[in-house]
Amino acid sequence: MTPPPLIRIEALTRRFETGGGFLKRPRTMMAVQDVSLSIARGEVVGVVGESGCGKSTLARLVLRLLEPTSGRVLLGDSELTALPPAALRAARKRMAMVFQDPYSSLDPRYSLAEVLAEPFVVQRRALPSGAVAAMLAAVGLPETLATSHPHQLSGGQRQRVGIARALALEPEFLVLDEPTASLDVSIQAQIIDLLADLRDRLGLTYLFISHDLGLVRYFCDRIVVMYLGAVVEVLPHADAAPRHPYTRALIDSGFAPDPARRRTIAPLTGEIPSPFALPPGCAFAGRCPRATDRCRTDRPALGGDAAHPVACFHPH
C-alpha cells in the first residue's frame, strides 16, 4: 500500500488582472492553469520551464504566499488553501521556502543570528540556546559568522543562510525556487550537494523549481514540465524519454560539456505567445514541429499513461 502523499495540489489556477484604469480595459493573465500534482513524503519533485511559464507563481501558490483563483493545496490532512490566518501561520512551521536571489532575501539590517532567530520570533517560540550555531553548522557555515551582516558574505554563503533559515523550525516540506540560478556553477554544485545531504539526513520533501533541465534531471525524482502556465508533461524519472515536443526541445537546447557531442540544433521557430492572449489550442502549437490543425483549435489535456502523463495530441 502506498502511503498518502504529503502534498496534494488539485486543479490549482491563478489569474492576474492587470492594467485596468482610465480608458483601459483590464487584461487577464493566466499565470497557472489547472495544475494538479501529488508529492510523496521524501520525494524531490522538479518543476522546469522557461521564464513566464508560471513555475514561480506555482511555488507561491503551493505555500499560499499567493491566493489561488481556484483549486486546493493540501499539506497532509490540512487544506492550506482553506485555513484561517491563525491556523495558516501555525502551518507555516511545517513548510518553508528558499528563494532565488540570495542578495535580496536577507534583510540587510539583520545579523545572521537575527536572520536565524526570526522564524522563532515570528512563531513566538523560544530560541533554544546554541540553536544559531547549530543551524549555521548544519549548512556548513562557521559559528563566527553569527554576528556578520549579509553584505559581508558571498552569494553562496548567503544562500546557505537562506537554507538554514528555511530549516529553522524543522519543516517537512521545502519549496526551492531556483536556489542556484544566481550562483556560479561551482557554488551551485555545493548548494545542490548540501540540499541532497539535508534531504537524506532530515527526511525532507522538496518541490524544486528551476529553468535548468539538466540540473533538475540530476537532482529530482520526478519532473513536471510547464509551458505558459500549464503542465505539459510529467517525467516519472530523470532518464524517462520525453514524449512532449516541448520537453524534447528543452533537452535538445542544452549543451553537453563534451565537444565530441557537438550537434546542430534545430532551433525552435516562432515566438512564445503572450500569456494575456493564449491561443485556443495547444499553447506550444506555434513553435511545434509536429503541430497539426487540431493542435491549433483544441487544447490537449494532460493524460495518457498515469505514470507518465503528457498533454499532446502527437506525443513522441
Binding site: E50, S51, H211, D212, L213, A249, L250, D252, S253, G254, F255, T264, I265, P267, L268
Partner: peptide, 11 residues
Amino acid sequence: LDVTVQAQIIQ
C-alpha cells in the same frame, strides 16, 4: 536568456 533561445543565439 531562456535555454531554447540560448540555443538559437549560440547557433
